[in-house]
Design a protein around this nucleic acid. Structure first.
Lengths: 103, 103
DNA sequence: ACATATACCTTGTAATGCAAGATATACAGT
DNA sequence: ACTGTATATCTTGCATTACAAGGTATATGT
């Protein structure tokens, strides 16, 4: 049902502007997602690249190996729009269920 | 991240009143969940029973085999409360991400 | 006797999420 | 030069979840 919810969130963050994985992981925490390790995020980014939702460019880091910056493709933007619609449907449905049972 | 979201929704529906699996499946559709087959719901109900979140009583049906009615246990009610909190956190976080990118 | 609707369960598979660990680069302190 | 620390990416292996598909069983109407 909610498969791809993380995908959607990541697409949305990338849409704000080019970003690399490590930074993205930190940003997710800032938005209130506590539970995402890099072991979750990196495989997901690789998958999205494979599906042509994002493109990457390597850039030097000030301290560490090269950063892999991600940007949305047109297909990625479309996917994001679809995700937004899906999220509205789902969150509405869950809120429906929740608010019936009690105050 | 959203593992157990269906669990929470089902707990919430059961809290409204005793209900059996087949009816629950139909009710979920009514709330706007399109994609849940019985192959998803029944195993989940059995698991929740095993975890002592729900209890069951069998009752005659007007047309078909006996219905298995589910009710919440105290533990199930606690689980539901926790889920509600978790859902608020998560939906807030996702909405944060979504609305930044510009609607 | 047969079809249909109801009702529950099992099997097998794919996707997802995560911990843990492997690899690699750069800089700062000693 | 050596060591530790922070940065940065990727891989492996496992557990959970979601789902389609199929299987079993009961009651009613014709």
């Amino acid at each position: 049902m909610l498969k791809g919810i993380l995908d959607g969130c990541i697409l949305s963050i990338i849409q704000e502007g080019e970003i690399y994985g490590y930074e993205l992981a930190e940003k997710l925490q800032g938005y209130g997602f506590h539970s995402f390790s890099e072991g979750t995020i990196y495989p997901l980014l690789l998958r999205m690249q494979k599906e042509n939702l994002v493109t990457t460019t390597l850039k030097k880091s000030t301290a560490g190996p090269k950063r892999k910056y991600y940007s949305l493709t047109t297909k990625g933007e479309e996917e994001l729009e679809q995700f937004k619609l899906r999220w509205e449907e789902i969150s509405l449905a869950v809120n429906n269920v929740m608010n019936k049972g009690g105050h």
